[in-house]
Design a protein around this nucleic acid. Structure first.
Lengths: 142, 142
DNA sequence: TCAACAGTTTAGAATAAATATAATCTATTA
DNA sequence: TAATAGATTATATTTATTCTAAACTGTTGA
């Protein structure tokens, strides 16, 4: 299968052996119609629902973190009680609805390019994330 | 004392009674020469070092969160194991050095205004934060 | 001023996310 | 296919944060 080979490739490039569990994780993450946001626990549930394979939390944590290191997944910077991850690794940003604890993508086209003029000696910028927190607008709309 | 009155005012506006512990927290947070970043544990230590007053974690958590709600402090969106807070509530952004786990301010002037063209019906933007993750630049500089 | 009470503080318990452990299992390779 | 390096898992551990309940304190009104 072409898919499986892609996944095996992604896994090997991340320094991981292709195992049943990891290929299943890849299928869920990279075979979806749309990109999506998830927490580790949600991912475990999705896998359990889509297949008969049981995957432990530890395996999912390890695999997700290896993919992040490699750039196949992104971690969304948020002060939520759990970490949120994103299968959309293209340049884009997020609304975070604090009342509903929900993330909403903001496409790159909807935000002017963030241009940081300051540099830190010996360091380079690895990623730039914009988080816009939103709340109900009761003042003007009610 | 003028300071104490300021603090009492801040506390009352946050819906909190001015107590010995809370006024001490205010002194450390708002009487500093420069604004600074901190975690709850760090704040507890600073208070213990600066005064003979012992303040419990719970009290610091409650007070810090009340101040954030009121806008006297800011929480910095980061996926660190602990939450980071900022006494600088003016509009500015952050570098986060993942290798050294260190936050560095980016002044507003060093970032072009982030203009989000998209809106969500019934919601308004409460805050916009830019997090630029930085890593060692070994490729070009070594 | 002071009693009553609503709100506060605190130590310690509870919760829950994330990580570590170690025994068992599996992919790789020679 | 046997040896082994690496993977998986259930479980234990760690640690930030929140909760709890008993003791304490600021506030209010008489």
């Amino acid at each position: 299968m072409a898919y499986a080979e892609q996944y095996i490739d992604k896994l090997r490039k991340s320094g991981l052996r292709p195992t049943k569990q990891r290929i299943k994780i890849c299928e869920v993450l990279f075979d979806a119609e749309k990109t999506f946001h998830f927490t580790i626990k949600e991912l475990v549930k999705i896998i359990e629902n889509q297949a008969n394979i049981k995957v432990s939390l530890a395996t999912v944590y390890n695999t997700v973190h290896a993919f992040i290191k490699k750039g196949y997944l992104k971690e969304i910077p948020l002060n939520a009680s759990q970490s949120y991850y994103d299968t959309n690794v293209t340049h884009h940003h997020h609304f975070f609805d604090e009342e509903e604890n929900k993330l909403i993508d903001i496409h790159q086209d909807d935000v002017d390019e963030v241009n940081i003029k300051r540099t830190i000696p010996g360091k380079k910028i690895r990623s730039v994330e914009v988080i816009a927190k939103i709340v109900s607008d009761n003042q003007s709309q009610k």
